[in-house]
Amino acid sequence: MSDFTLRATNVHKTFAGPKGTSVAAVNDMSLEIASGEFVALGGPSGCGKSTILLIAGGLLRPDQGEVEIMGTRPYEIDAARRASIRAKHIGFVFQQFHLVPYLDALDNVLAPTLARALPGAEDKAKALLEKFGLTDRRHHVPSSLSVGEQQRVALARALLLEPQLLLADEPTGNLDPENADSILDHLAGFAKEGGTVLMVTHDKRAAGRASRSIRMEKGSIAESVS
């Protein structure tokens, strides 16, 4: 077993641009994140932050380079097994929350069990909702929840299957400072309990809550501050 939860080596990813051009979103980037680390990934828009997050999540195959998640190279196995690795080891949190609009908070939290069965899932989901202060909101659909509540539901969903790696893309981007702090507290708590967090953020204050802060420019790491 690797010491690193996530290791990306010389990763390169290019997207097709207008008129046949190509845009290098990630350019020969290497990154290693150990268990218990809370890493913030910052940088200007279009610097490749979200792209590296998707690559790290086994969702976007890099053009070049190697990626290893919990000792497994996701892009060297088939899509079904890659999906299984995501279900087993990775949790996602997005700026837009991406909650399923017709499921209430509890069912949204339980949605990952569609991928992987978890004994006592409902009790665990209820416990997570309680932990995030959403007990009385668990039967509300996303449209009747505040943005802060929605993000907490999304975070609870990401944590239900007890992943080793939590990938968060601008998790506080739509939140007021109070709700943002709450989410950051939970992310930090998750890392403190041994989990690994890779968070993309523009917010310097959010980045300040991480144990390591990486600044990207033009698809590469410009600065890494612990």
């Binding site: 991406h98 609009p101 949605a111 990952p112 569609l114 991928a115 992987r116």
Partner: peptide, 16 residues
């Protein structure tokens, strides 16, 4: 679309 995207990201299979 978004729902399907996030479900897929969570590891839910194409078959499901």
């Amino acid at each position: 679309q978004a729902e399907i995207g996030i479900l897929r990201a969570m590891g839910i299979s194409t078959g499901s």
